[in-house]
Design a protein around this nucleic acid. Sequence first.
DNA 1: GTAGATGCAAAGTATTTGCGACAAG
DNA 2: CTTGTCGCAAATACTTTGCATCTAC
Lengths: 144, 144
Amino acid sequence: MSESIEQKCLAKGVKLTDQRKIIAKVMSESQDHPNVDELYKRVSKVDSKISIATVYRTVKLFEESGILAKHEFKGGKARYEELSESHHDHLIDVKTGEIIEFVNEEIEILQKKVAEKYGYELVDHKLELYGVKKNPNKWKKKYL
Amino acid sequence: MSESIEQKCLAKGVKLTDQRKIIAKVMSESQDHPNVDELYKRVSKVDSKISIATVYRTVKLFEESGILAKHEFKGGKARYEELSESHHDHLIDVKTGEIIEFVNEEIEILQKKVAEKYGYELVDHKLELYGVKKNPNKWKKKYL
DNA sequence: GTAGATGCAAAGTATTTGCGACAAG
DNA sequence: CTTGTCGCAAATACTTTGCATCTAC
């Protein structure tokens, strides 16, 4: 396993309070991409006295410290996930909201090239694919 | 030139009021990607009685009708642009906020492939590159 | 001990909506 | 005519902030 969020905080000089430890732990254990409300709910189960203001302040701090990634998917609330060493992008199922993480090195390279073509150094990017699940049972159509 | 926004409204059965005509015209003439506030300002110059609620309602309607594209660039307000037949993505200068439109067919194809790999049909996507302008005057560094 | 963090409630920002008056087809 | 739109102000949703208190280092 890689560095824990707590370790990252120490490394970046981010003061480790009880609240931050709890939020860090909850995020670490989250396999999905919770929004602040959802995160607040999960955190509240551990310590019900933590305020939502602290959750907002903490995710912002963690994001600025490169510990969490913030995503603003189409028409939804901001969602967060732990930033890992391996970069990935997202494929969102528009019907179910399910999120699939994927890596595509070719696209990464092409993005860099596009930026360079215009005289820019790529510092960040956002790639989101929105799709609907293909029906593998084509035969069903025959009965409609 | 391609179809005007007014023509598209007729084609889609969107009722053409004076307010919508003005908003359509202002958007057509905008070469940038205005947010609602900015659009409201421009529209107000033509008819100061138009309310911002109407501007919000109209851009939403136009977006749903496939007439305008809505963008939610990092940490900013939603911005709009006229949807043209030629799809493009955006490269955003993180220092100046300048937006460069680009087309990259290779990336488009790869995106489709990624979606297919996971059993999805791509219905939409968002690709935003964030960059800083490279300094072409490398010599400057010598004097720092 | 002190700079910075927290909880609370209030304020901010962006956007949506209820409603009576009004206008397009 | 009738259905949908407009302007207005109030409401909503999400996020930030001022302030007094508390805590990690």
